[in-house]
C-alpha cells in the first residue's frame, strides 16, 4: 500500500527531517510508526497524503506515485486516505456532525445519506449524543474522536493516524484501537504514528521505528 524509496525531507540546510527512508506497508496491514518526538513521524505521514513533497526519493500509495501526481489529482488521493491529524483540524464554525459529514459533502453524497453515515461514524466513537455541538465545546479527547470519525467515514483504503490516542484515557484509547482493528479487518490499511510503547506492545503489530529521520525497523 505504501512504498517509500530513499526518501529525504529537508526544510533547510540545518534541519533534516527524514533521511534515506525506505519502507513498505503491505495492503491490509496494520502497523505502527514510532520514535521519539521530532523523529519525523508526522513528516512522513504528510508526505504520504501529499501535504508536502519529499526533497528526494519516491513514495507510492496504492501503486500511484504521489510525488509525481499532478496538482489536480491530489484531492482524489486525499479522499481515498483517512487522516487523523495530531491537532485534529476540525472546522470550528461547523457542528461535529457537519465536520464528519464534510468529506461526504465534497463527494456530493445525498444530504440524508451524509447525515445517516455521519451519525453512525459519531456513534462508533461514542459521540452521537453531542452531534450538534461545536468543536470548541468539546474536550481534547472528544475532538480527537471526532477527527477519527471523520477519517473513517468514507471507508478509506488507507488510514493514517498521528498520535490518535494522545489525548485519550487508557480505556478510550483501547476502544479506539479496537475500532481501528475492525476497520482494518474490513480491508483498510492502517498506519498509526505513536510513541505510546505500552499500547504498541499490547497490540502486537508490526512496528517501524524512525529515529533522527532514519528507519530503524
Amino acid at each position: 500500500m505504501i512504498q517509500a524509496f530513499h526518501v529525504y525531507k529537508q526544510y533547510d540546510r540545518e534541519s533534516v527531517a527524514l533521511s534515506d527512508i525506505t519502507l513498505h506497508v503491505e495492503k491490509g496491514e496494520f502497523c505502527f510508526l514510532t520514535g521519539p518526538s521530532g523523529a519525523g513521524k508526522t513528516t512522513f505521514l504528510k508526505l504520504v497524503f501529499r501535504e508536502e513533497l519529499p526533497s528526494q526519493g519516491q513514495i507510492l500509495v496504492g501503486g500511484r506515485n504521489v510525488t509525481a501526481i499532478p496538482e489536480a489529482q491530489i484531492p482524489e488521493l486525499r479522499r481515498s486516505i483517512g487522516v487523523v491529524f495530531q491537532d485534529f483540524k476540525l472546522l470550528k464554525r461547523k457542528t461535529i456532525l457537519e465536520n464528519v459529514a464534510f468529506v461526504l459533502r465534497i463527494l456530493a453524497v445525498p444530504h440524508k445519506e451524509q447525515k445517516r453515515r455521519a451519525f453512525n461514524a459519531l456513534k462508533a466513537v461514542g459521540l452521537h449524543h453531542k452531534m450538534h455541538a461545536y468543536p470548541m465545546q468539546l474536550s481534547g479527547g472528544e475532538q480527537q474522536r471526532v477527527a477519527i470519525a471523520r477519517a473513517l467515514i468514507n471507508e478509506p483504503m488507507l488510514l493514517l493516524a498521528d498520535e490518535p490516542t494522545g489525548n485519550l484515557d487508557p480505556g478510550m484509547a483501547q476502544e479506539i484501537m479496537t475500532l481501528f482493528q475492525e476497520v482494518n479487518a474490513r480491508g483498510t490499511t492502517v498506519l498509526v504514528a505513536t510513541h505510546d510503547r505500552e499500547m504498541i506492545q499490547r497490540m502486537g503489530k508490526r512496528v517501524i521505528t524512525i529515529q533522527r529521520g532514519r528507519v530503524n525497523e
Binding site: F49, E51, A72, P75, E76, L77, R78, R79, V83, F85, K89, L90, L91, K92, R93, F102, V103, I106, R150
Partner: peptide, 16 residues
Amino acid sequence: QDELDIMRLVGATRAY
C-alpha cells in the same frame, strides 16, 4: 484560512 486548509487536506478540490 485555517478552515480552507482543512478542506483541502480532507480532499476538497480547489474549485470546491
